[in-house]
Each structure stands twice: as C-alpha cells, then as structure tokens.
C-alpha cells in the first residue's frame, strides 16, 4: 500500500526528516508517536505533497508508484488523504458546497449523530474542536480513500467525542480495508484503535517501531520519549 524509503525532507532550507522508512500494508493501522516538533506533521505534509515540504531524498511509493513529485490533488485521486490537525477556516464556503464538489460517495451525516446544521455552515468558521474533527472525518469518508493520515485527531477532544470518532473510523474506514497512519502523542486513541504497528519519532528520525503499542506507551509514560532512544523493543 504505502512504502516510504529513506525519505529526507527539508523545510525552509532546514533538514527536518532524515531517512524515514515506513511500510503500511492494506488495512493496517500505524501509529506515529513523538513529542512536539519531532517532525510528525512534517512527514504527513510531505506525504501529501504540500508546498514547502521539499523531499531531498528517498521515495514515497503508493501502490507501487513513486508519488513524491505528484501534486496534492493527484495523490488524493490515487486514494491518499489527510485529516488536518488545524484545518483552516474558509469563509463563504459551506461544508455542503465542498462536499458537493469533492465527494466520491454520499455520506449520510445522520449516522454520525451530527447536527445537520453543520453542513450549512462555512467551513471551520466558529466550529468547536469536536465539530472540526467531525467535519474532517465526514470529508475524508466522502472521498472513499484507501489510505488516511490523521494528524492529531485526538487533540482538543474529550474522551466521549474521541470514542465516538474512533468508532466512526473503525466502522467506515478500517472495516472497509482502509489503511491509517495515526499521528498522536496521547494514549487514549491507541486504546480505541489498537494500531498494528507503532513508531516513535524523535528529532526527525524514527527511533523505534513495534507491534506492541502498549509496551511503547508504557515506556513513554514511565520514562518519557528520551527513553525511546535506548529502546530495546524488537522492531517489526
């Protein structure tokens, strides 16, 4: 599905990511943990091809095709998409209008126990934290993706809302074989989605990968991210 080989990325001329390797298979959930400013979101933006995130080496292979030179929308056409941590407000454009333009499948918002008024509001203008995340998920699902990056989905969400959203992700994405890269630095979302593989990123490098997210999380909670540098967990 997605294979990243020795990916290095610069932002504003500064090296942010160094030789990142990641292999996400169809239907797998991978979690990427790391402290603030470790490069997690940079990896997400580089994978999506956002301008300013310059790939200086390596490959991003998506279903066998190196996509690192494709524009954002071409990557979306191939099935990749991103739920933003801080989606911008777009004044004058209603959520329903955007869905009308971009949807590949109809989404029945009633299934998400969302106030239907949300669709009639301008995108992310005055949305609460929960509404922003819900709006992101509705948009993502409407695109019928095969690979989704969730950048800090859990930021600013209370536990009840997080449980609700992760349940939607399970039902609408994971149960349909969609692969997910979950960027986070909190434990609750791991408990809800139980990733197949969990990685730790420190200073632009993946320093640890394991199938046992509980052990990684226990280490982080007990000793902090710095302990991951000395990680002895078997990778893979």
């Amino acid at each position: 599905m997605l294979e990243i080989k020795n990916l290095s990325v610069k932002v504003n001329g500064k090296d942010i990511l160094r030789e990142i390797n990641l292999d996400v298979k169809k239907g797998e959930v991978h979690a990427l943990l790391g402290p603030n400013a470790s490069g997690k979101s940079t990896l997400a933006y580089a994978m999506m091809g956002l301008p300013g995130y310059k790939v200086t080496g390596g490959e991003i292979n998506f279903n066998g095709r190196d996509i690192k030179r494709l524009p954002i929308e071409e990557r979306v056409k191939l099935g990749m998409t991103l739920a933003f941590q801080h989606p911008p407000a777009i004044r004058g454009v209603k959520l329903s209008k955007l869905l009308e333009k971009t949807s590949r499948q109809t989404v029945d918002v009633k299934e998400f126990s969302v106030n239907p008024d949300l669709l009639g509001r301008e995108i992310n203008v005055g949305f609460s934290g929960g509404e922003k995340k819900l709006s992101e998920i509705i948009q993502i699902i409407s695109l019928s993706p095969s690979f989704v990056i969730f950048d800090e989905l859990d930021a600013g969400l209370d536990i009840k809302n997080l449980e609700k959203l992760t349940s939607v992700i399970k039902n609408k994405l994971l149960d349909n074989g969609v692969s997910v890269l979950l960027i986070t630095h909190r434990g609750n979302i791991l408990r809800f989605l139980e990733p197949d593989v969990t990685h730790v990123m420190l200073a632009g490098e993946i320093v640890c990968s394991s199938k046992d997210w509980r052990k990684i999380w226990k280490t982080i909670v007990g000793s902090g991210y710095e302990k991951c540098k000395e990680c002895k967990l078997p990778s893979g």
């Binding site: 956002l50 301008p51 524009p71 954002i72 979306v76 933003f84 911008p88 333009k101 695109l143």
Partner: peptide, 14 residues
C-alpha cells in the same frame, strides 16, 4: 495558501 492546500487535499485542482 493554507486554505488553497486544504482544498487541494480534498481533491480539487488549484
């Protein structure tokens, strides 16, 4: 630019 990239990440061309 941020809004533009956001909409492109939903599949719209520039």
């Amino acid at each position: 630019e941020e809004a533009l990239n956001y909409l492109r990440s939903r599949g719209l061309t520039e």
